[in-house]
């Protein structure tokens, strides 16, 4: 029991807070459960295909191929591929992280995986249409262009800050997934 709690301490902390809210503010508590339920349906709808795709990627794509496309020596092409892969994927961050983990496991360069994550969170092409229609095209276009630079700068900065030891640890961790 203690081991289970230790392993999932995040979940248990949240559960305790949830219970406390439910007891102290029954109305808010119930409301939060309703929201959780609604989101759960969304989660269960979007996650299965993503995990299946990750599984297929794991089985079919050779490490060597991935290294060639997004690995250490992939150069500017690797940057472009990561960027395009990111902006075309319109899934929330939580669904994106397992994909990033698999990309690392297959030997992608860390800065490329960061470009993938950052571009997907800030620039999602499928969502641009929606942003444009609700926020206006000038707003959307400006944000789009500025964000391209932000994505590249962020990935570069993090990559520079990480030591070789950090990077080895990240790959080691990804291998265990």
């Amino acid at each position: 029991m203690r081991e289970i709690i230790k392993k999932h301490k995040f979940l248990f902390v949240v559960l305790i807070i949830d219970l406390a809210v439910l007891i102290v503010f029954p109305y808010k508590g119930r409301e939060s459960i309703v929201f959780t339920g609604k989101n759960l349906i969304n989660f269960l709808y979007i996650l299965p295909p993503i995990f299946i795709c990750i599984g297929l990627l794991d089985i079919w794509v050779e490490r060597e191929t991935m290294i060639k496309i997004m690995g250490e020596k992939s150069g500017i092409r690797g940057v472009l591929v990561s960027f395009m892969f990111g902006v075309l994927t319109a899934v929330p961050l939580y669904a994106l992280l397992p994909v990033a983990g698999m990309l690392l496991k297959k030997g992608s360069k860390i800065s490329n995986v960061l470009i993938f994550i950052c571009s997907c969170t800030s620039i999602r092409i499928p969502l641009l249409l929606f942003e444009g229609s609700s926020m206006g095209w000038k707003f959307t276009a400006t944000r789009f262009v500025v964000n391209i630079f932000v994505v590249l700068i962020t990935a570069y900065l993090i990559d520079t800050i990480l030591t070789d030891k950090n990077k080895d640890m990240i790959y080691e961790n990804a291998n265990k997934l």
């Binding site: 979940l11 949240v14 809210v21 939060s32 959780t36 989101n39 759960l40 995990f51 599984g55 397992p98």
Partner: peptide
């Protein structure tokens, strides 16, 4: 795929509960 999903499921559930609280 199922194994990977199963290992992160508790964390996903925690996020869901937390988001529910924040939204409320």
């Amino acid at each position: 795929a199922w194994k990977m999903f199963k290992t992160v499921l508790p964390q996903f559930l925690a996020i869901l509960l937390l988001v529910g609280l924040i939204l409320a």
